[in-house]
Amino acid sequence: MTGRHARTRQQMAITERELTAMTGELDMLHKETFPSVAKSLDEFTANLSHLRTSRHTARRSFLAGVGGAVVVGTIAACSSSSATGSGGTNYTGDLKVVALAAALENLAVTAYAGALTMAGQGKLGKVPPSIAAFVKTAMGQHKDHSAAWNGVLKQAKLKPITGAPLTITAGEVAKLHKAKSVADVAKLALSLENAAASTYTFATENVSSAGGIMTAATIQPVETMHAAILSFVLGEYPVPTAFIGTGAAVHPAALTV
């Protein structure tokens, strides 16, 4: 057997055998992890009366949205959608952050699902198997995150967030539709993942409920991991900073419901 054949066979071996094994491992790990998250969410919902009436838990007015900032960070700067703001929102206090988180997760799901559709239509060129696997797995995890946050809203007798009612959504979807390649989609996904990670970092500081803090804390590293792999695929250094900042965070005032 030539070296080239041997290498091809080895590559095929990870594609087929390891992927199957790893997919099984992923499901198992997910099942192992979810009970502890469910516990955090239970703690979160156990204190719903407090969450409903929480007026000002943020030292930096994160929830109040004062200071004229609608959205902070790079996405806000790029967004061309009109800001309807969040006046008269049904979601207040920590629950506003929960609704924001659910909307951000749904936006990520929308972006990844849209990318898969465009790939299926041949609009992105040839999609490498590793990218397809990334999109499917990351999208599944964002769905899990959204379901977790919406579970809290349901417990609070509030309407779950369907779709992505955010001031930034139209702009992000427009960017997706303009994408011509896998790299274009990866860049968009990277900015969404960074925004989500940044928002959750900010949430750990500004949410008052212990369950909410821990839920944000357990989701934030998953978004940063998505970002690292996306950066790697794009040929960028995958861990560019020693600290995850809050500069790209999406403000709760970006929520339009």
Binding site: H30, V37, A133, A138, G140, T218, V222
Partner: peptide, 13 residues
């Protein structure tokens, strides 16, 4: 390989 795209983030939480 396909696995390289998803092996880096094994948990949703």
């Amino acid at each position: 390989p396909a696995a390289a795209g998803s092996v880096g983030f094994p948990n949703a939480f």
